[in-house]
């Protein structure tokens, strides 16, 4: 298969019963929305979900984005901690 097809990562969310919380239960990767939905339905079949949905990760719009605790990575998370330690050592 060619590498020109674009794959997207999707977060999978599910609700067990009406009124219950909507949890993220996993991830799938697919080259189309329809395929992502099929993968989610076939992979996460451990329960008879009341609701199941997929959201492309690049469509998530963070309101509060979690900060990491390890050294600064590609996303820039954890940079504040590394800077604090460098400041206290000097």
């Amino acid at each position: 298969m060619s590498t020109s097809v674009e794959y997207r990562a999707y977060a999978v969310f599910a609700r067990s019963q009406r009124g219950g919380p909507l949890y993220q239960i996993g991830f799938v990767e697919a080259f189309s929305d329809a395929l992502a939905k099929t993968y989610a339905n076939l992979t996460y079949d451990e329960e008879n979900w009341f609701e199941l949905c997929v959201v492309p990760l690049d469509e998530l719009r963070w309101v509060i984005e979690p900060q990491g605790v390890s050294a600064k990575g590609e996303s820039g998370r954890g940079g504040a901690i590394v800077e604090q330690r460098a400041g206290s050592a000097g």
Partner: peptide, 21 residues
């Protein structure tokens, strides 16, 4: 319907591929 969706997505991809596919 789910089997048709799955296979249909792959068939559309094959049609759009390059080379011998």
């Amino acid at each position: 319907a789910e089997h048709i969706t799955f296979a249909g997505e792959w068939c559309r991809r094959f049609r759009a591929e390059t080379g011998a596919i």
